[in-house]
Amino acid sequence: MNFRIWSPLLCVLVLISAAPASAQRQVIHEERSQYRNVLVTEFNGQRCMLFNIHRGDMNQTCIDLRNPKRLVFNYTKMSFAGLLLNPEPERILVAGLGGGTIPMVMRELYPEAEIDVLEVDQAVVNVAREFFGYQEDEKHEVHVVDARVYIKRAGLRGDKYDYIVLDAFSGEYIPEHLLTREFLEEVKALLTDDGVVVANTFASSDLYDYESVTYQAVFGEFYNFKRAGSGNRIILATNGELPELGDLRRRSRELYDALAPYDMNVLEYPPLLTTEADWDESTRILTDQYSPANLLN
C-alpha cells in the first residue's frame, strides 16, 4: 500500500474520529457577511466570536458568561495600558469593533467621553449588538466603514482624538493599507497634543520588525508592551514626548481600582513598557507602495 496515496484518507479518518471532542463547542449563531461569515460559539462558560471555525482557534473576541466584566484576552487587557499615557481621554476612536469590549469598557470608565468606533463589516456589528451586549449611546457611535477611509476624511474635517485604538486585524488576513507609513501619518494628524495611539500588533512573525520600524519612522520613540504567553504586542505612541516611568507608575496606582474589576492588574504594566528597540532597525519601512504584510506574517 502506497502511504502517500492513502495519507490524505487517513487524515480524513483521524479528523472524523476527533470530531466529537470539538463538538462540545456549540455554534449558537451564524451571521452572513460580505467578508467571512461570523460565528458565535459557546464553550466552557465562554461565548466567542469567530471568523473561521475550520482553521482552529481563531477567536476574535470572547466574553465570560459567568462574569461578563472579566476580560478574557490578554491583548485586550494590555491595550488599556494606553490609559497610563493619557488617563483622561475625552475623544476616543477605536478601529475594529470585535465584540465591542474595548469601547464598552471605555464607556463605563469614562461616561462623558465621545466614542467613535470603525468596523468594516456590518455582520460584526450585528453580532456584537445581539450576542455581546454591545450598545451605542448618544456620544458613542459605530461607523460601518473602512478605517482608512474614515480616518482620511476625519483628517480633512480637522477632527481630533486624544485616544486612538488600532485593532483592525483579524488573525487570518491583515488589511495591508492599515500598516503603512502614510496611514500612520493620517492617524497621527488626528491626535491631540496629549493624545495616545494604542496599536495591537503581531509579536512573533516577520511583521514585528516591519511594523516596529514603520511606527518608529512616524512617531519616533514609542513604548513597546509584550507579555509572555501572548502573541500580541501593544505599541503605545504619542504625538509628543513619552511620559516618564515615574508618571506611569503613579498613574497605574491611580487607575488600579477602576481597572481591577475587569481582571486587569495595571500595576504590573509599567515595568513591562520599554522603549528599547529589540528589532532589526535596518528593516524596510512599510508604505502604500510597499506593504506585503500578508506575505510576511
Binding site: D146, R148, V149, E176, H177, E182, D288
Partner: peptide
C-alpha cells in the same frame, strides 16, 4: 487593489 486602498479601503 493596492493603488485604490489608501483612498477607498480594501473592502469587498
Amino acid at each position: 487593489g493596492r493603488v485604490l486602498a489608501p483612498y477607498f479601503g480594501s473592502s469587498v
